[in-house]
Design a binder for these strands. Structure first.
Length: 268
DNA sequence: CTCGGAGCCTGTCTGC
DNA sequence: TGCAGACAGGCTCCGA
């Protein structure tokens, strides 16, 4: 489901709702989640709900002992829903349920790719790549990351060990905005092209956050509200429709088994 | 080291 | 209606 803007949206909505409540009880319903050590979290107060890469992270302060962090990665189809504690909830696809003082936090995930982990330091969870939303992405930093790679640009943008936050939707959108062909070798960009790419990454992500992310089939924010960024998508899932810039029919190609959408005339 | 492809798991939609 | 195949917003593993 979510790329960085959707995760940011979820974290921002959970934060005021959960902050200050204590975690009373945790129930893991899916053996695929493994056995994260949740015992030390019980009684801990939610200090903050934030985002780390594409994970939602609850910062927890136990009554005794060091802070802990509970991280949920939603992967393709995960959702985090807050509901009043006593309310009856749908069981289908429910993988974990957390009880707090007043609310319950529900982790739904039909495809079961999502993860739930407990860490004792943020460093354990910290993704390797730069986060272009937390810190401005400087063209020279991006150039250093791209240097030497022969990987197609689209595939390069999806890796999280260099740059964190883009997924399949926004990678296509970013390349369109930057006027760069998805098959260009990542290390082949000129200085001017790198600057355009850096600016596009930042603008697309910030604009998507400003609109609460993109809703296709099943992304909803924690309040059950849909994001509205899909109104601004220029190329994603628009093959054969006219390019908003030049009017040529947009194209779809498959890279690494995943769809890429682009304009063969504007993107070079 | 780099890269592309398979695999993880379930649901939905399309076309025969 | 039934069924096979494609596809789905992510990421890890494996072999070349």
């Amino acid at each position: 489901m979510p790329e960085l803007p959707e995760v940011e949206t979820v974290a921002r909505q959970l934060d005021p709702r959960l902050r200050g409540q204590r975690l009373q009880r945790v129930r893991l319903l899916d053996p695929l989640l493994g056995r994260p050590a949740v015992r030390p979290l019980l009684g801990a107060r939610v200090v903050e709900v934030g985002r780390l890469g594409k994970q939602v992270v609850l910062h927890l302060d136990p009554p005794a002992g060091p802070p802990h962090y509970l991280a949920v990665h939603l992967r393709m189809t995960g959702r985090l829903i807050v509901t009043p504690r006593q309310r009856r909830v749908a069981q289908r696809h429910l993988r974990a349920r957390l009880w707090l003082d007043h609310d319950a936090l529900l982790f739904y995930d039909p495809r079961r790719f999502g993860t739930l982990t407990v860490a004792r330091s943020l460093r354990e969870l910290q993704p390797a790549g730069l986060d272009p939303v937390t810190r401005p992405l400087r063209p020279c930093a991006l150039a250093a990351l791209l240097r030497g790679s022969r990987q197609p640009l689209k595939a390069w943008l999806l890796r999280q060990d260099r740059l964190v936050g883009l997924g399949n939707i926004y990678a296509s959108e970013v390349l369109f905005r930057a006027g760069l062909h998805p098959c260009r070798p990542a290390g082949s960009l000129s200085a001017g092209e790198v600057t355009r790419l850096a600016r596009s990454v930042t603008e697309v992500l910030q604009q998507a956050i400003a609109h609460n992310g993109t809703t296709f089939s099943d992304f909803q924010t924690s309040r059950g509200v849909s994001g509205s960024y899909q109104r601004f998508l220029a190329v994603f899932q628009r093959q054969r429709q006219p390019c908003p810039r030049c009017g040529a029919p947009l194209l779809r190609l498959v890279q690494q088994g995943r769809s890429t959408f682009f304009c063969g005339r504007c993107q070079r």
